[in-house]
Design a protein around this nucleic acid. Structure first.
Ligand code: NAD
Ligand code: NAD
Lengths: 215, 215
DNA sequence: ATATAATTGTGAAATCGGTCACGACTTATT
DNA sequence: AATAAGTCGTGACCGATTTCACAATTATAT
């Protein structure tokens, strides 16, 4: 679309900036410098200035950034004025936790429906989200194009195919499976066991002075 | 320690390789090529060969890699012979989901204890893990040096200070707060709302042909 | 035995991401 | 009005990571 010169690394930091600018605004702060923001989000201030500069000159030299302006800018940039609907597949331990969480409040993202194969769960409502039977996936998924996958790994490929067939274009995959999709589908993996293991590996094999905060 | 020439990007992929090599071994496969592995883990085959090469010549030209040998090598490299103990702080939606999950099975990581401030939860056992009162943190945390943070964001800084004082060196932080720690402490952030928002941003602003599977 | 196909390990190049450091500009102070 | 202090935006640099592409080696087929 429009902003495709934005580096991926920058794009991944935008929601973080947005959250903290929001906080500042709630605190009634009128201006903020890249240095202050840096302390809050733990990203180097030069990186922040560079990130912002991809969108043009958002600040004023010698002054910093106007909080309200910045907030408005990022709200537009992150499309926070329109709600994004999401479907969750797999209402188990992890899925249930997500259903209880309100992504609307700060992120304008709404888990609109959930699917499971367990008859005990189908028909219930968890955190205001209706749980449908997975057999009805094709019937109920309507216009939604982002899915959260919290099913057993063995089910991941089969369900993914059905999601893709229905026009889903983005998948947040919590299963340990690395799913196969056409190249026009975007998949982000959050692999909790890998994250834990990687953290442990770093602790054991890297000198303590060189540690960093990673995402 | 020993392996500190391994690039961070490589280190973060090691647990993933380990998991899939394990799968192959269970399937009775004797050899594997970087191309096959690439299809399974969705990482370019040249990247896999480069990653492996940091550890020496693990394969044979024209043949590929011996699965059993590779498995043994990564088990040693990832210290899978000794269990790593972890403490979980905050037995809410997310924390409870983790307590029900068995990280031991494939990752040799054990959530050994949990802490909460809610008297309803203190004293219970969830997924074989005892829940202690947060006031007893200093008393119970013993030798554990990795913590998972699943408490409200407002509590994050206070609890972090106590963890650091007790000698914790690695933190997996699920709260939206960016915590302040001495530079010798390693923090990995998993920020679910940011992940969702970033996925949505990519879908809206990047051409569909250019999508990738990210971690 | 020879030819063909497969596959590694790695220099070299390309890409990406992060940081330094400074000119230009704004604000505050005297 | 002049000076000092603060801060952005960015060119230049550096380091990390990824990818290309190929010589070397091994396995397989005939
Ligand atoms: N819970 C954790 O802490 C954790 C940690 C790491 C990875 N994971 C991964 O996340 C995923 C979910 O974990 P979990 O602990 O919530 O598992 P879970 O078993 O509690 O939940 C899985 C849910 O999916 C449902 N399901 C099964 N097959 C289905 C199908 N075909 N269609 C629709 N629903 C189906 C089940 O009924 C169940 O409710 C798993 O892949 C797991 O490996 C979880
Ligand atoms: N659940 C989700 O899907 C989700 C999504 C994104 C982010 N998060 C973040 O993850 C964190 C946990 O989320 P959750 O949904 O599990 O929250 P939750 O409110 O269900 O759980 C928090 C738990 O921490 C306990 N607690 C509060 N103060 C404490 C203290 N000082 N010491 C020890 N325990 C304390 C509470 O008693 C509660 O059990 C939050 O920071 C939340 O913002 C959660």
């Amino acid at each position: 679309m429009d902003h495709n010169k934005i580096p991926q690394a920058t794009a991944k930091r935008l929601p973080l900036y947005y959250r903290f600018i929001n906080n500042l605004n709630h605190q009634g702060k009128k201006r903020v410098s890249s240095k202050e923001l840096s302390d809050a989000v733990k990203v180097d201030s030069a990186t922040i200035r560079r990130d912002f500069s991809y969108f043009g000159a958002l600040g004023k030299k010698g002054y910093g950034y106007n909080v309200e302006y910045l907030l408005g800018f990022f709200r537009k940039t992150l499309d926070q004025d329109e709600t994004t609907d999401v479907a969750l597949i797999g209402v188990g331990n992890l899925g249930t936790a997500f259903l209880h969480y309100n992504f609307m409040k700060n992120n304008n993202i709404l888990i609109k429906m959930a699917f499971d194969s367990d008859p005990e769960k189908v028909g219930t409502t968890i955190g205001d989200v209706p749980v449908y039977h997975i057999a009805d996936l094709e019937k109920k998924l309507d216009g939604v194009n982002v899915a959260i996958l919290t099913i057993p790994a063995s089910e991941a490929d089969g369900i993914t195919d059905r999601l893709v067939a229905e026009g889903i274009t983005g998948i947040l995959n919590f299963t340990p499976a690395r799913i196969t999709v056409p190249e026009y589908i975007r998949v982000h993996h959050i692999d909790l066991a890998v994250e834990l293991q990687a953290l442990v590996y770093f602790l054991k094999h890297y000198p303590l002075e060189e540690t960093k905060q990673l995402d």
